[in-house]
Design a protein around this nucleic acid. Sequence first.
DNA 1: GCCAACGTTGGC
DNA 2: GCCAACGTTGGC
Length: 168
Amino acid sequence: MARTRSYWLMKSEPDVFSIHDLKACGVTGWDGVRNYQARNHLRDDIKVGDGILFYHSSAYPSGIAGLSEAVKSGYPDDTAFDPKDVHYDPKSDPAKPTWYRVDLKFVKAFPSVIPIQALRKTPGLKNMVLFRNGRLSVQPVTKKEWEIILRLAKKAWYPITPKPESPR
DNA sequence: GCCAACGTTGGC
DNA sequence: GCCAACGTTGGC
């Protein structure tokens, strides 16, 4: 029997890599993750066909910006072996890699980002890992949460919050 | 810029 | 193995 589809949320700072960058490149390797809990999901749990909520962090607004899908399950993240890479980790042994990545493809950019404030206010989303362990950059999402969020994306239009002036 | 939450490191 | 110090993330 076919495996049930799982769902995930992955964070990215849009200044570094946004849903529009994913749209432009089509498929990308999700590398540079250097947290063990997130690594475990990348290495062991995410399978081809799984649905991914693409989350913009440290953004205006922060929130879910679109959809992605896993096209390749966990394999070693070789940026860890490259001394010139910002994510270089001298402790990661190529013969026994510490860090893993998956490949993702672009599925959809929402017409407007669903802001975290709207997610927080939605009753069925109270228990999202996003609110319990906000710092985890690769986190599981339940089927129910996934469905609620797809409905929010379809119905709602969210104005772009202006970026506050930085103090001088 | 501030700070809460969490992870990692290292002395003991 | 404990825990204090420190670093990072990310919302606000």
